[in-house]
Design a binder for these strands. Sequence first.
DNA 1: TTATTATATTGCAATATTACGATTAATAAA
DNA 2: TTTATTAATCGTAATATTGCAATATAATAA
Lengths: 110, 110
Amino acid sequence: MGLTKTEIFSEQQNQISNIAKAFGHPARVAILQHLFKINSCICGDLVEEIGLAQPTISQHLKELKKIGLIKGNIEGTSICYCIDRENWVKMKTVLSVFLDQDLNEKANCC
Amino acid sequence: MGLTKTEIFSEQQNQISNIAKAFGHPARVAILQHLFKINSCICGDLVEEIGLAQPTISQHLKELKKIGLIKGNIEGTSICYCIDRENWVKMKTVLSVFLDQDLNEKANCC
DNA sequence: TTATTATATTGCAATATTACGATTAATAAA
DNA sequence: TTTATTAATCGTAATATTGCAATATAATAA
């Protein structure tokens, strides 16, 4: 049906997959990398930098904002988007619990 | 158009987003967690464990296998799926370059 | 050979995502 | 006020994803 059955999974599992989904598009990866690199940004820069149309970038920014990885302050006609470093660290904490599962002494069975 | 413009992004950016996409569904997160937990598995277990239909689980397993995070050995009528720990570590290395971008001395601009 | 069991594949419906042109909204500059 | 400038929103087309019933395949058991 194309609809993820969120209700049968734990909150942690949904949280992890939601974070991962935000990283699941190269444009959003590129946006985040660029924001880290220049440490301050307006949307126009990104349109040139990334190479997608302005509405498309705006849409990706909206998703990143929704999940809390970036925040935007209005600055005249433009908006200063930047990384929400506090949330970024929180996000990494959630992910690391999942990613570091292999740091147990168990060996492979096959 | 619904088609991601892969060609305008770097190989690293596409690699990161592809890994993230694999984690971008709670069922796949749950499957990986379960595989780590019991350290050996067959698909039937997962159908009960996760609560989705057998074809759906099979499809998710296929995607995880495609990206190399799990591997399956034929064992009689069943298949022993397990984590590909070598690739898991490689995957973490790729991701950490991206996730640890914030470990620079820069402050927030806004 | 004929079940039985376990998993994969196919086909399809429903929903989600991606991308962009056109438009709108809001501020700044003239 | 009029005219840029900048970014958000709307509408829509194309493609991807999710989920499952039905079926196929493959290996073992009877």
